[in-house]
Design a protein around this nucleic acid. Structure first.
Lengths: 144, 144
DNA sequence: AACAAAAATGATAATCATTCGCAAACACAG
DNA sequence: CTGTGTTTGCGAATGATTATCATTTTTGTT
């Protein structure tokens, strides 16, 4: 019996969970796998749908609990854009902020060291350290 | 019978409402007055408490409907900071963003033309126009 | 491999902020 | 002053999220 690709992937995720001090369960692997593989920013309902495809006995309550645990562990980020439910994404890539397309709901990532730096400077000037921030640009496609 | 200060204030607010195409009601004047006078960023519960002090027959549903109407009319801005209910403020002053003190919950305003400009540039580079944005710095007081 | 303690799960009830539905009260153009 | 379209107050409904609790799993330990 050889180790499959999927097993490998699962093993990695399990190791990550353990490293974060979380117990390894089929549901957590499932949810983490879905979040890790996706390119978009799914909400709980969507995660539930996808996780359930792999393991139909996953409950929505557990998806809620799992994302909360993953956020706590710093493996996942939670975003709440205007007038929508919370969305989640893995935090393996470099830090970035978001553009929300007001017409399509599409979410585009961008990153600006210059803005980050200005934020810190401004906060410092007012006697604060920035712990984290939220920057969202609500946009429409530019007309030609 | 002379025109009192309060009447004057009320008259101004009434005129503003009319100008925005909204009917003038005692409740709307009340809520708008509370939002106009305050220095902080009250949520609906707080607005309800204060508006009710002046006019005890104001209901919370009406406060919700009124802030919605005022936002619609562009007279009031709505902010939803992390893990809190929506807060409101008048939009008479210059545009600004917010620092949220993670320890005290206090909200401090700041403003940076430079950041605004960078935001537009970035969006433009990706083919977008910024309609509005949200920038919040979650901070702690800087230790000496 | 079997065990016990601690933690996670599923199903469902509860919570919280906010919105709705509707009959009664009100605003305002004529 | 009157009619018509709005707004209000009340309470019920909603939607997302969290809590409860009995049952099942995980995992460190024999």
């Amino acid at each position: 019996m050889t180790t499959t690709e999927a097993d490998h992937q699962t093993g990695k995720l399990a190791a990550e969970l353990r490293l974060a001090g979380l117990r390894v369960t089929a549901q957590r692997i499932g949810v983490l796998q879905v979040i890790s593989e996706t390119e978009d920013h799914p909400d709980v309902e969507e995660l539930y749908r996808r996780a359930r495809a792999a393991d139909p006995k996953t409950s929505i309550a557990t998806v809620y609990r799992t994302v909360a645990a993953l956020v706590q562990a710093g493996m996942v980020q939670r975003h709440v854009f205007e007038g929508a439910s919370a969305r989640y994404e893995r935090v393996d890539k470099r830090h970035h902020d978001h553009i929300v397309d007001l017409d399509t709901g599409e979410i585009v990532e961008f990153q600006s060291d210059r803005i980050e730096q200005l934020q810190s400077e401004i906060a410092a000037r007012m006697g604060y350290d920035v712990i984290h921030h939220r920057l969202e640009l609500y946009c429409r496609r530019r007309q030609a």
